[in-house]
């Protein structure tokens, strides 16, 4: 648990830095976001079903989970 608290401390600092540095970044206009909107910029190339299946494999074969959003559903596979 102590390890987790230490780790979280660094992350909170990082999140804070992200919030602050965001203020000084150049504003990207909506019509400049075509590249960012590409499917290839998303996990799994935008194939959400395959991302879910792969997460399901990890969930059933490993002891960790989380980070991919709170929704997903449970199963008896672990």
């Amino acid at each position: 648990m102590l390890r987790a608290v230490r780790s979280m401390r660094y992350i909170v600092i990082l999140l804070g830095m992200l919030l602050l540095t965001g203020c000084s970044m150049k504003t990207v206009q909506p019509w400049e976001k075509g590249t960012l909107a590409k499917k290839s910029m998303q996990r799994g190339g935008g194939n959400t079903l395959m991302v879910k299946f792969t997460h399901h494999i990890y969930f059933s074969k490993e002891a960790s989970k989380g980070g991919g959003g709170v929704a997903g559903g449970g199963c008896g596979c672990n």
Binding site: M8, I11, V12, L14, L15, L18, L19, T21, G22, M25, K26, V28, E32, K33, T35, L36, M41, K65, G66, G67, V70
Partner: peptide, 18 residues
């Protein structure tokens, strides 16, 4: 939190609890 860095990159950082 998700931040667009420039026209070609973005960063997301998240904390989770279970």
């Amino acid at each position: 939190i998700t931040q667009v860095i420039d026209v070609t990159s973005l960063l997301k950082a998240s904390l989770f609890y279970g």
